[in-house]
Simulated scan of single mutants.
Amino acid sequence: MPDKRPRGYQPLWRPRPATLELLAAIDVILARYAELLPMSLRQVFYAAVSDGVLEKTERAYKRLGEVVGMGRRSGRIDWGAIRDDSGICLEPPPAFTDPGDFRGRMRRAAEGYRRDRQEGQEQVLELWSESAGTTAQLARLAEPYGLTVHSGGGFDSLSGKHEAALRAAECDRVLVTLHLGDLDPSGVHVPRALAEDVAAFAAAHGGRTELVRVAVTEEQVARYGLPSAPPKPTDRRSFTAAGTTQLEALPPDQLAELVRAAIEERIDMAVYEEVLEQEAAERAELLRQLEH
């Protein structure tokens, strides 16, 4: 069954009268808490329940999510008004015990000085993992090459897809998403939806995107002898593999091998080495200046 979900911006959206009423109620809620934005979808939901606009049911929550999503896609609701919660950590500005502490941190910062290690490359690479549990390992693998790592399935975080599109437009290069996910109906359809939605948003801003599936694939299941299980009989989405396999079934060393190969296959190693050399020279100069 083809996926009929909207992709990218939807400026021609014409909501029905009942939807317009809900949008008006959402406007009231967002205006009420204007100085405290962004709000999570769950916060908007409970405010709507408190206002008597919605019943406290999963069905009502799902409908609110669909309406808010289309409101954002159409420009009816500001993107910054709603946040997608996914492990957010907000910290105050840095503070110091005294000027000596500040100078010490400046030196440590200089010792860790880095250039953009994707500078000069024809593409900008990012790693996206369906499993939050793999992000720490992926971050260690990506760190030498200067890649950012994101976690999340893609269907749930509209903000994440929109922000990826904006990054693609700002970098003036093709933004390539190296995607890792389970081999199951969700693992097949989520990246497809992610790629289509990010591409649609990016195109509106002049950006270019590409998604490359790194793992798990049917070929990898056979090559590494990974365990698999039958797909859920209740999931009717198209799925042609013989069985389902989770990303965590890949042993860490094999996952690392696949990720490094995917990265190095898409970067110019000579350009990368030049950036590292320039980085080292500039780091030494910064430390020399701090000595004085």
Results as ranks from 00 to 15, higher is better:
Asp3Glu: 13
Arg5Ala: 15
Arg7Leu: 15
Arg7Glu: 14
Tyr9Ala: 15
Gln10Asn: 06
Pro11Ile: 15
Pro17Met: 09
Leu23Arg: 06
Leu30Gln: 05
Leu30Trp: 06
Ala31Gln: 10
Ala31Tyr: 04
Arg32Lys: 13
Tyr33Lys: 09
Arg42Ser: 12
Val49Phe: 06
Asp51Cys: 12
Leu54His: 09
Ala60Ile: 10
Lys62Gly: 15
Arg63Thr: 11
Glu66Leu: 10
Val67Glu: 00
Val68Gly: 04
Gly69Ile: 08
Ser74Thr: 06
Asp78Ser: 15
Gly80Trp: 02
Ile82Ala: 11
Arg83Gly: 13
Leu90Arg: 10
Glu91Gly: 02
Ala95Leu: 12
Thr97Leu: 13
Gly100Tyr: 03
Phe102Val: 12
Phe102Ala: 15
Ala109Lys: 07
Tyr113Asn: 06
Tyr113Glu: 05
Asp116Glu: 09
Glu119Gly: 11
Gly120Val: 13
Leu125Tyr: 01
Leu127Gly: 01
Gly133Ile: 12
Thr135Cys: 10
Leu138Arg: 03
Ala139Phe: 02
Ala139Pro: 03
Ala142Gln: 05
Glu143Met: 07
Gly146Arg: 00
Leu147Gly: 02
Thr148Gly: 04
Gly154Val: 04
His162Ile: 04
Arg167Tyr: 01
Ala168Asn: 01
Glu170Gln: 14
Cys171Pro: 03
Asp172Gln: 13
His179Cys: 11
Gly181Thr: 13
Ser186Ala: 15
Ser186Phe: 08
Ser186Trp: 09
Gly187Ala: 05
Gly187Glu: 02
Val188Asp: 06
Arg192Asn: 10
Arg192Gly: 13
Leu194Cys: 09
Asp197Gln: 04
Phe201Val: 00
Ala203Arg: 11
Gly207Pro: 00
Arg213Met: 05
Arg213Cys: 07
Glu219Gly: 02
Val221His: 02
Arg223Lys: 09
Leu226Asp: 10
Ser228Glu: 08
Pro231Val: 14
Ala242Gly: 12
Thr245Arg: 00
Gln246Asp: 14
Asp253Lys: 03
Arg260Gly: 04
Ala262Met: 04
Met269Tyr: 02
Val275Thr: 12
Leu276His: 09
Glu277Leu: 13
Gln278Asn: 10
Glu279Gly: 13
Glu285Asp: 15
Leu286Gln: 03
Leu287Asn: 03
Gln289His: 12
